[in-house]
Amino acid sequence: MKRAVTLSWCESRKRVRAYAGSKNLKALSLAVLLVTASSSQPKASAESSANTEYDVKAAFLFHFAQFVEWPPDAFKDEHTPLTYCTIGEDAFHGSLDESVRGKRIGNRELRVRHLKEREQIDGCYVLFLSAAQRGRQGEPLASANGHPVLTVGETEHFVQEGGIIGFCLEEKKVRFEINLEAAGRAQLKISAKLLALAKTVLGNRRED
């Protein structure tokens, strides 16, 4: 019988062995970075370090969609855009909208919708619940439960409450945890690469 991995919060002292980290990979990444940096199209001056946290999270959200597989019947057809949804005030202050504008994943257009509180989450494929949603995530999570919606949050107990991916900050760097059981209920397949980079995974793990 497979046992569930004990979930731990982001403790600065703990190291999960699944975390990728070989020196070769670092060097390669640095080289790749320099190449991509020179070919990227930056938006503007970088004085706005105030938004860095959410710029990084916006980029993570973009990547999450690349490494998650939705069930085939989740989209009406191949032209249905992959929609990201946020609830309430936009914690990204536009960063998410700008990050996904004009981009495609698997040839699908990307769209961002900012929902009001209590608005329906139909048509959302990625649902982001910001820290401001603390204490009222029960309803959106219950609505998304069992539907092919990738729920992403940033409160401390997000994955235990049934969210699929939870952000946390460790020594000022963005990390994330994955609830594989919740992903399974949503019929979402999470690539092994994403699982390997996760700080911790709650649910059944093949290696254990």
Binding site: S40, K43, A44, D55, E98
Partner: peptide
Amino acid sequence: PLTQHLDLTQESLEDLM
């Protein structure tokens, strides 16, 4: 500056971390 954002989507996951 307060309304400009960095587009970091070109960076790989490992770099973002």
